Amino acid sequence: MKFEWKGVMPAITTKFTEKDTLDMPMFLKNIEAQIEAGVSGIVLGGSLGEASTLTREEKKVLIRETLGAANGKIPVVMTIAEQTTATAIEVARESQEAGADGLMVLPPMRYKSTDLETVTYFKDIASQTDLPIMIYNNPVDYKIEVTVKMFQELMEMENIGAVKESTRDIINIGRLRNQFGNDLKILTGVDPLALESLLAGVDGWVAGLVCAFPRETVAIYKLAKAGRAQEALEIYRWFLPLLELDISPQLVQNIKLAEVATGIGTEYVRKPRLPLQGNERQRVLKVIEDSLKTRPELPDYKNLTTMA
């Protein structure tokens, strides 16, 4: 399998049982739905995957089981989101030993590092693994921006080759592309800016609502990359109320409710998260229910010829 940072890569949710253990049957049901829809990779253990609540042993289980389901067809990427460099390196090594194909690395957690500290952190991790690395650039949620200047230093590392671009600044896609050309692969990480980002030339989409709607997500990507922007736009406009559920502090609960509605997930979250309550729960359920009533028919997107 040739590893490429491109296509739709679900930031998959972690499924739990009512007893707060991993729900592997439902997790694998979702993975199978993603693969059938035509995703290009699976990203495990991100913020949507409730990474901060997972034990290291649970992460190994998720990698092993996902690799088994993927069966070499698509890469499996593990997220590194740790408080210390030493722990991040240990998790990176464990992920490689468990069979992960790549890593998505977040900046230091719970500490607003300086530019130098951030670059050093990323380079220290990259120097201790052979796996390809995608940097997660999300200053909105993590208060640390990885700038073009910082990427110039990071690109000195042979295995740092991609960015999950979540600044919510479409102009930044052009900045990165103008500076690095195709040497740095760019994947959008903001669901309700996905089509705009694809038309601006990103290579892929690390998606959230794909967890509940894999076929629609891949169809938008394929249509956009095949030059059929109007058809992609029609699906995207239908999808937008759902996609906006991804840019919320309760994105995990929102997306898990959507997974329940489409039959490929459960609502259980791990504390301190709690299921949605009251008016907010009803609002999110209405968005999901209204969208399901008008769910579009999709073209034969799997057989489209896409541009690079």
Rank of each mutant, 00 (worst) to 15 (best):
M9K: 07
P10A: 08
A11L: 06
A11G: 00
I12V: 11
I12E: 08
T13E: 11
T17F: 10
E18D: 09
D20K: 09
P25F: 13
M26Y: 15
E36M: 14
G41V: 12
I42Q: 15
G45L: 15
G49I: 13
E50Y: 11
T53Y: 12
T53Q: 14
E57K: 08
E57T: 07
R64S: 09
E65T: 15
L67E: 12
G68K: 11
N71K: 05
N71V: 02
G72T: 08
I74V: 02
I74F: 03
I80S: 06
E82Q: 03
Q83V: 08
T87R: 07
A88M: 05
S95M: 06
G99I: 01
A100H: 03
A100F: 04
D101M: 04
M104S: 02
L106I: 01
M109Y: 04
R110G: 00
S113V: 00
S113L: 00
D115K: 00
T118P: 00
V119L: 01
Y121N: 02
L131W: 08
I133Q: 03
I135H: 01
N137S: 07
V140W: 06
K143P: 00
I144T: 06
M150F: 06
E153H: 04
L154T: 10
E156Q: 10
E158N: 09
N159K: 04
G161S: 10
G161E: 14
R168W: 11
I170T: 12
R175L: 13
G181D: 15
D183N: 13
L184D: 12
I186D: 14
L187D: 13
T188W: 13
V190Q: 10
D191T: 11
P192N: 13
P192E: 15
P192Q: 11
S197P: 02
L199I: 09
V202D: 11
G204A: 05
V210E: 13
E216A: 06
A219Q: 08
Y221E: 12
K225W: 11
K225N: 06
K225T: 07
G227A: 08
Q230K: 14
A232I: 08
A232T: 07
A232H: 06
E234V: 06
L243A: 09
S248W: 07
L257I: 06
G263Q: 13
I264H: 10
R270N: 05
R273A: 05
L276Y: 07
R281I: 05
L285E: 10
L285V: 02
L285C: 00
L285H: 05
L285N: 01
K286P: 00
K286F: 05
V287D: 04
V287A: 01
I288W: 08
D290A: 02
S291H: 07
L292D: 02
R295N: 03
E297K: 04
L298K: 03
P299K: 02
N303Q: 01
N303Y: 00
N303P: 00
L304S: 00
M307T: 04
